[in-house]
Every structure is written in structure tokens, then in C-alpha cells.
Design a protein around this nucleic acid. Structure first.
Length: 730
DNA sequence: ATGATTTTACTTTTT
DNA sequence: GTAAAATCAT
């Protein structure tokens, strides 16, 4: 067969073609931004189905976000038709795991109707843990404990295997154990459990593992650099036997280490699959040469990466614009002004995206766009499903699906008020503890025993019988009808619609939720709740509209726009102040900027503000331009607008310099003395005690290399930024 | 048990 | 400045 005439390969370059038609076996495609990796992935799937005659149901394709999954399914439907696209398993890791765990609930020792706990629910449970264990919530912050537990789960560490080096570790281990116990009482799984339980299921149950190995004889993974240990173990369990594992990765776009992602999985893959074939996609089809040069200059500032030679056949292009605004309002007004000019010159709103580091930054932009009458759509941000009234209704529904869900039980037991107060609830909780069961079980036992006061008894009985009615109704009616029952019987409608405007708008949200259910006719309650838990953004469900897109740099990954605005490029914003403690943190922030820049096809506008509101109450502080801007070569910069060119202020203080040329460009300044010396003992608030291995001045910053005693290992820290203190000598 | 008042913490990124 | 949490009064 002549490859070039095959319709599937039409329009692909030699590298892409080789990657699409590679024979069966383990494959790693290293793909730069804009090199057509989604294209390669979809064409590979089509190739498997049409050329190698693989049945669609044997294909498992995993993406990182629901949006990417939807996009890929869309493309495959166009290429292969509805049936094939529907038959294959295509979704996020979490979605795939949910399906497997529901089907294999018995083998996994789970209730098939288990609840999925989102981050709010997780926090509620951890607060309960802190309470139960009589911990001081100032010293043991539920959030921090949750983070530790989440990392442990992502590393597949069980509570009794949690490594203990300090007393704090000891507390974490116990809190972890108790947390899991509470989840179990509720028949609930959190996001991390979905991965961990699946990995453990495959580890402990060879029959189930083999079943899925046979089922998913072809596994494809997008954004492999952002997989964590649990996800890697799942992939290995399924793919190692048949070796048909096809992954696409770009280490320069690894931006989820805070979620346990470990780009070293690429190295593990090479070790675990010695027969791995590698392909490199280096031709960029997205951006102009200017944009590409700028992005490469930024990413070149990171060490420990494989250098790539991205190239494009679109030479030249518009130079970048770098704009300094006075504050975030004026920055937003500048963006709005520029967008208006673009729209006047014939750009579609949908061709433009505005990106930022944190969701909070969208506010000023929204206001400016609204004032300018520019249509926009916001990705992420205030999420529909996290609104109070929506969560209340969902809690009722979750309780109908799984009465043992204690988080939902606690949420709605007295909303609207039905005379069940703290005291009654404490009695229920005490009974639940006695019988080691859920609150619902405790409630039923108390009602049976009849030991409560008449008032409390009747109030509880009313609630219990309502629940029972809905559970019966659920068998015969649609989810939408069930919502109608719930809001009427519980009095929730009357409670919300108290005549206030706020009440009416909240009621509209409840109706919007009902509308979202009706959009999918015949969806089961369990499926609906699963979807809501995993697709946390209602925008994901809304259809595409022609509007300017507002989104964080994280959610921008995988997308592309003719015109991109990157805003808030200041120290503390990007790199974010909470992410500049270690060199690894800063390297990841740099990758984030790289991801943002490489989204742009034709025009890239960078902006920062001279001062920015920080406090929670209007206070505004002067800022420094992002250190990364210093790495932009003059050749890619066109206008420098605004009151201050970034180079005009000396910025040696934040050039991490040894491997960027930036330090050469900055004025010399007196060298301060290092604060730490080799051999000195130190304490870090997160990492515990350690010893300085090396300390050196880099510009005005002191860079220390510290070996920590607990499982943390060696970290490179900026002495000025890290919460580090010297320990006195003995 | 509930409503009113005061206090406190909160914002990094997402499945 | 907001939302949740703690405290107080009814």
C-alpha cells in the first residue's frame, strides 16, 4: 500500500505518518505544542479500527480533561461515524475508573451505588476527622491534612503504610485512617480513591485484571506527562501484558505536579517497556515563527529537559506586544480596548482568548468586557455545581441514591429548618458511632428505640419517611420528576422563594439543574450524579458560542486561538507567590507560561500591572514584572507600551540566573552574605528537619540545597522564600 | 432550636 | 469584601 495515498494519512507529515502507522507494540510519541498530537492520536485510533480491524470496544483512550475527551469523540465521530465512536471507551482516568468500579463493585468490595465526594465533601469529612480526633484545627489544618492524604493516595500508599518520621506524620497517618473509615461508613469515594481503588483492584484480583486486559487490548493516553503514580500503575496493569500502550507526552507542558503528576513516568515507561518505540513531533503547525521563538526562549530557561527543535513553515509574523498597565482595572480596560479594535478589523470573538494564572483575576476582565459590550465566556471559575442551592438539591438526590452518604445527610437534615438541631443530630451521630454505621442507620435505630423526645422523634420521623418515599418513587420516575418531588415535599421551594430577588435567582439555578437533567432523557440517578461529580463545570455542558474565552493557564492546555492575551505577568502572580519556593516550583510556573504562549496562532499580547489589589479589602500594592519576561529576546518584542519598560528597573533580585542570560543584562550590585552554610541543621514547616548540603548566592537570592530526614529527600530552596529556620547548634 | 450578631479565614492551578 | 463559623440572645 502506498501510504501517501491512504485517505487516513492525507495531510500528515512524515513524522506524524510514522507515528500513526507504527506497528503494534508500546509507543511513546513526544510531541511539542501545536505539532498535531491530537490529530496523531485520533488518526491512530482510526488506523487501528480500519486498517488493523480492531473492534472499537477494545479501545481505551484516556484524556486529561472531559473537554479533551469530548473534542476527541467529536473528531472520531466525523472520521468513523457514530457507532464506532460510541463503542470505544473514551474519557478521563477518573471517568474510566468510575465505570470499572461500578461494574466490579463486588470484587472491589464497594457498594455499587457508592457516592463520589468532591473537594467540598472531602473537606467536610476531614473536618469531622479533626473533631473526632480532638485535634487543634489551627495546628492540624484540615486542608493540609487533606493534601497529605491526597498525595499518599496518588502514590498508592495505604494508611498503615504511611511513612512516619515526625509526630506530624503520625497524626497524618491516623487522620488518613480515620478519614478512610468515615468514607467507608458513607459508602463514599473521593477523587483520589477512584484511581487508588482501581489500581488496588487490579493488583489484588487477577481475574478482574485479566478481564480488562482482554477487553482493552489497545490503550491510548493523551498528556501522559501529567499522569500520577496511581494512573501509571493502572496503565501498566492493563497494558503490560499485551504491550499495546500508545502514549503522547510533552515534558515541557507538565503543569500538574501539585496533583501528584510526575513527568518521570516517562522514564518509568522506558524502563518498564524496553520495546518502546519513540517518535518525535517537532514541526509546529499552529504558531508563527515569532511566537515560537519567544516561547522557546522562555522554556530554554529550564534545566533538566530534552532540548527540542520546534520549527514552523510560517516565517515571521507579528511581533509580540508587551504592555504595562497601572493596575488590574486598567489592564483589563486595555485588553477590552484591544479586543474591540480586533473585532472592528474583522476578527471573530471566538478567535480570541484571555488567560491568567488564578481564577480570581477574571473578575476585573469580566467587568471591563461587559462594559465594552464584548461577548465572553468564562471557563471554570465560580462553578454552577458548587452553588449552595444546587449543592443542597444534589445532596437530597445523593441521599436518595445512597442514604449512607453522611456528608449529604448532614447538609440537608435541617435544610429547610425542620426542628432537628444540634442536640438531636449529636444523638444520631452517637448512635451511628455505637453501631459503626452511617448517620442514616443511626437515625433509623433511634426511631426504632423510641428513646427521643416526642418533638425530636416526630421531626426525624418526618425526614425519614420523606426519604423513603423518594426512594420508592425513584424506581418509577425520571430524575427531573424526582427533583420536583424533592423540592415540593421537602419545602425547599418555599424556603428558597421567600420573595427576595436573591431567592428567585437561586430558584432559577435549581430549575437550571432540572433543565440539565432533562437534556439527557432517561439518564439514571446514579449516572446523573456521577456526571455531576466528574464534570464540575456547567460550561462544559453548554454549546459553543461565538465569544471571547476567559480561562486560566491550566485550563488552556490543549487549546489554540488566533489571538491570545496573557495577563498578570508579575512576580507573585506568575510565578505565583505560593509556587516559588523550590526550583521545581519555578520551573513549573515557567512551563505554565510556555503553555500559555504556545496557545497563540498569530498574535500574542503580554501584559502586567504596575500595582495589583492583593488584600481581601481593596488594598493595592506595587508589583515587579515577572522574572520570565527578562528572557524574551528583543527580536520578538514589538511595542513596549505603558509607563515602564520592564528592563528599565534593575531586577537582579529575582533573576535565578545561572542558566538564563538575564543576569548578564542586569546591573551589578553588592553581593550579600549567605545566611546558611553546609552542614547546618534547619527546620522547614512542611518538610521537617534537614541539613544544608550546599548554599550559594545566585544574584541576591540564596539558593540552598537541603537534605530532609523524612521521605522528602533533597530539595533546592530559595532561602528567602521558603519557611525555613536555622536550628541552634548543640 | 433558631435567629441575630460578631469573629475569622480566605484565593493557585482541577479530576 | 464575602462566606462560613462561633457566640449570644430569645
Amino acid at each position: 500500500m502506498n501510504d501517501s495515498t491512504h485517505p487516513l494519512l492525507h495531510g500528515l507529515n512524515a513524522q506524524q505518518r510514522a507515528a500513526v502507522t507504527t506497528p503494534a507494540g508500546p509507543v511513546l510519541v513526544l510531541a511539542g505544542p501545536g505539532s498535531g498530537k491530537t490529530r496523531v492520536l485520533t488518526h491512530r485510533i482510526a488506523w487501528l479500527l480500519t486498517e488493523l480491524r480492531i473492534p472499537a470496544w477494545q479501545v481505551l483512550a484516556v484524556t486529561f480533561t472531559n473537554r479533551a475527551a469530548r473534542e476527541m469523540r467529536h473528531r472520531l465521530t466525523d472520521m468513523l461515524g457514530d457507532t464506532s465512536a460510541r463503542e470505544m471507551t473514551l474519557g478521563t482516568f477518573h471517568a474510566a475508573c468510575v465505570r470499572i468500579l461500578r461494574r466490579e463493585a463486588e470484587a472491589a468490595n464497594l457498594a455499587p451505588n457508592y457516592a463520589i465526594f468532591d473537594s467540598d465533601d472531602q473537606l467536610a469529612v476531614m473536618k469531622q476527622v479533626v473533631k473526632d480526633m480532638n485535634l487543634d484545627d489551627k495546628r492540624y489544618k484540615p486542608r493540609a491534612l487533606l493534601n497529605a492524604v491526597s498525595s499518599a493516595k496518588n502514590e498508592l500508599i495505604a494508611p498503615d503504610a504511611y511513612p512516619i518520621h515526625t509526630y506530624y506524620d503520625e497524626i497524618i497517618a491516623r487522620a488518613y485512617g480515620h478519614y478512610q473509615q468515615l468514607l467507608r461508613n458513607s459508602d463514599g469515594l473521593d477523587f483520589d480513591d477512584l484511581l487508588m481503588k482501581t489500581a488496588n483492584l487490579f493488583r489484588d484480583n487477577p481475574l478482574v485484571r485479566e478481564k480488562y486486559q482482554r477487553r482493552y487490548r489497545n490503550i491510548l493516553v493523551d498528556e501522559f506527562q501529567d499522569t500520577n503514580m496511581a494512573q501509571y500503575v493502572i496503565l501498566k496493569a492493563l497494558g503490560h501484558e499485551h504491550q499495546h500502550l500508545y502514549v503522547v507526552a510533552d515534558e515541557d507542558q507538565s503543569i500538574y505536579s501539585w496533583r501528584g503528576a510526575d513527568y518521570r513516568n516517562i522514564r518509568r515507561l522506558r524502563e518498564d517497556f524496553p520495546k518502546l518505540t519513540q517518535y518525535l513531533l517537532e514541526e509546529n503547525y499552529r504558531s508563527t515563527q515569532v511566537i515560537l521563538d519567544a516561547a522557546q526562549a522562555i522554556i530554554a530557561g529550564n534545566r533538566d529537559r530534552t532540548p527540542k527543535h520546534l520549527y514552523t513553515h510560517q516565517p515571521g509574523g507579528d511581533l509580540l506586544t508587551l504592555h504595562e498597565a497601572y493596575d488590574e482595572q486598567e489592564e483589563a480596560e486595555y485588553v477590552a480596548r484591544e479586543i474591540r479594535a480586533l473585532l472592528r478589523s474583522g476578527r471573530e470573538p471566538g478567535a480570541i482568548a484571555v488567560m491568567y494564572r488564578t481564577n480570581a483575576q477574571s473578575r476585573a476582565l469580566e467587568e471591563a468586557l461587559m462594559k465594552a459590550g464584548i461577548p465572553y465566556r468564562l471557563i471554570g471559575g465560580t462553578r454552577f455545581y458548587t452553588r449552595r442551592e444546587v449543592k443542597d438539591i444534589l445532596a437530597y438526590l445523593r441521599l436518595v441514591n445512597n442514604p449512607d452518604d453522611d456528608v449529604s445527610f448532614t447538609r440537608v437534615i435541617n435544610v429547610p429548618r425542620r426542628g432537628i438541631g444540634a442536640k438531636t443530630l449529636e444523638a444520631v451521630a452517637a448512635q451511628a458511632r455505637v453501631q459503626q454505621g452511617s448517620l442514616a442507620k443511626g437515625m433509623m435505630a433511634l426511631l426504632h428505640a423510641g428513646t427521643l423526645s416526642t418533638r425530636a422523634h416526630n421531626a426525624l420521623l418526618g425526614f425519614a419517611s420523606m426519604l423513603k418515599q423518594w426512594r420508592t418513587a425513584r424506581e418509577n420516575v425520571t430524575v427531573a420528576a424526582l427533583i420536583d418531588h424533592v423540592v415540593t415535599d421537602s419545602g425547599y421551594e418555599g424556603y428558597l422563594r421567600d420573595g427576595s430577588d436573591d431567592g428567585e435567582s437561586r430558584w432559577e439555578n435549581v430549575m437550571a439543574l432540572r433543565g440539565a437533567v432533562s437534556d439527557v432523557p432517561n439518564i439514571s440517578l446514579t449516572d446523573f450524579l456521577t456526571e455531576v461529580a466528574l464534570v464540575a463545570d456547567v460550561d462544559e455542558l453548554a454549546e459553543e458560542i461565538d465569544a471571547v474565552t476567559l480561562l486560566t493557564l491550566h485550563s488552556a492546555k490543549g487549546l489554540e486561538y488566533p489571538v491570545v492575551f496573557l495577563t498578570g505577568l508579575e512576580e507573585g502572580m506568575l510565578p505565583h507567590s505560593r509556587s516559588m519556593e523550590t526550583l521545581d516550583d519555578i520551573a513549573e510556573e515557567r512551563r505554565l507560561l510556555y503553555v500559555g504562549m504556545t496557545r497563540a496562532e498569530e498574535r500574542l499580547v503580554l501584559s502586567y500591572a504596575f500595582r495589583r489589589g492583593w488584600g481581601y479589602y481593596g488594598s493595592s500594592e506595587p508589583t515587579e514584572p515577572s522574572r520570565f519576561l527578562a528572557d524574551l529576546p528583543d527580536e520578538v518584542l514589538g511595542q513596549r507600551q505603558g509607563r515602564r519598560a520592564p528592563q528599565s528597573t534593575p531586577r537582579a533580585s529575582w533573576s535565578v540566573g545561572a542558566w538564563g542570560q538575564s543576569s548578564e543584562r542586569t546591573a551589578p550590585r553588592p553581593q550579600p552574605e549567605p545566611e546558611y552554610r553546609t552542614g547546618q541543621r534547619v527546620r522547614h514547616t512542611h518538610y521537617g528537619e534537614g541539613m544544608i548540603i550546599e548554599s550559594q548566592m545566585e544574584g541576591r537570592d540564596e539558593m540552598v540545597t537541603v537534605m530532609f530526614s523524612s521521605g522528602v529527600g533533597v530539595k533546592r530552596l530559595l532561602a528567602g522564600m521558603a519557611p525555613l529556620e536555622a536550628l541552634s547548634e548543640h
